[in-house]
Amino acid sequence: MARRLSAEALGTLLLVTVVVGSGIAAQRLSPGDVGLQLLENSTATVLGLTVLILLFGPTSGAHFNPVVSLAGWFLGRRTHNGLTLSEVGAYTLAQVAGGIAGAVLANLMFGLPAVEISTTARTGSDLWLAEVVATTGLVALIFTLARTGRGALAAPAVGAYIGAAYWFTSSTSFANPAVTVGRVFSDTFAGIEPGSVPGFVAAQVVGAFLGVALVRWFHPDIDTPDTPGADTAARAVVPHATAPSGTERKSG
């Protein structure tokens, strides 16, 4: 469990470092051109997220996202194949801590104060709807890949989806409470003011449950014990082995 939590913390740290760091670089390289800044930021995020899933997936499942961990628990709860609720809590704490540390690291690498609280307001029903849409698609994609035995495609598929969602959502697809909290600590292109966080996180939680509902609708046997491959509900994002409570099993 210690290895899994450290993988989640470090993976989320590096993910936020990629997002915030590339945002700072984009501002400096392309001042005054917001469209080009977004292209640079999204490209770095696609590539970075893909690599991080490949790097940490075999250890922790490469969630880097509390709503993914929560969805894994919900989908696997009947057969006890997913995370336990206490493990979801531990994953969430590790992810949020990693997200904050990632913003600090990015700030320091670019010669900024370690902590700068963002002043970028991101609020309104349009942005909240965008976060619902972005998170719904992300959760549905991850667990559909798991259910259909295509977990090996998670890294490029999730990276591609987030890259696309940067552009087709008005919120630029945070889709992740830990990343949202982390981005509070960077007053840059990628930041979000503290007052905007509750609305974003609430929208992300709604999106997560809509994503779960889609998975259950299209794959109703996802957690049926006698269905071949049913334990794939637990394998988000990448299949990996754990040994909770002294028993070998697959978990996510």
Rank of each mutant, 00 (worst) to 15 (best):
G211Q: 14
L15Y: 14
L10G: 01
S245I: 08
F185P: 02
G207W: 03
G23K: 02
T169A: 15
G21Y: 06
L13Y: 03
D223C: 11
L83G: 03
A202Q: 05
P225A: 12
A213M: 11
S60R: 06
V179D: 08
L5P: 06
V88W: 04
G246N: 11
I117P: 12
D231R: 04
I117E: 10
P244M: 15
V18A: 07
L127Q: 08
T59H: 13
L39A: 15
H219C: 01
T84I: 09
F74S: 12
A165D: 03
A101I: 06
L54T: 06
H63S: 02
A146V: 00
A202P: 06
F74I: 11
R150L: 12
A190F: 03
L13P: 00
S245F: 14
G61Y: 00
V96L: 09
P225C: 10
V215W: 09
N65Q: 13
V181C: 14
S251H: 09
N107A: 12
W217Q: 13
L85M: 14
N107E: 12
L5A: 14
A234T: 05
A9W: 03
L83H: 04
A213L: 14
W128M: 06
G182M: 05
A9P: 08
F143V: 07
A202E: 05
Y161W: 13
T45C: 04
S22Y: 02
E8S: 01
P66I: 07
G149F: 08
G124R: 00
G35Q: 13
G23W: 01
A2L: 13
P31L: 09
D223S: 15
R216A: 14
G102K: 00
Q27E: 15
A25C: 09
D221E: 15
T119K: 15
F143G: 04
V237W: 00
F74D: 09
R235W: 02
D221G: 09
R122N: 04
R150E: 10
T242A: 15
H80T: 15
V18N: 01
R147G: 00
L36T: 14
V179Q: 03
F174W: 13
V34H: 13
A233Y: 02
T169G: 11
L13G: 01
G57K: 00
T247Y: 14
P66W: 00
V20D: 07
T144M: 09
L49H: 04
V215E: 13
V201M: 12
L129H: 10
A236K: 00
R77M: 11
A157L: 08
T224D: 15
A121E: 12
P220Y: 07
T59P: 00
L210E: 09
S173G: 05
V96C: 11
I117L: 15
T12D: 07
Q95L: 11
G11Q: 05
A165V: 07
D226Q: 13
V51H: 09
F189R: 14
D231Q: 04
G199V: 06
V88K: 03
T120E: 06
A7Y: 06
A208D: 08
L10N: 04
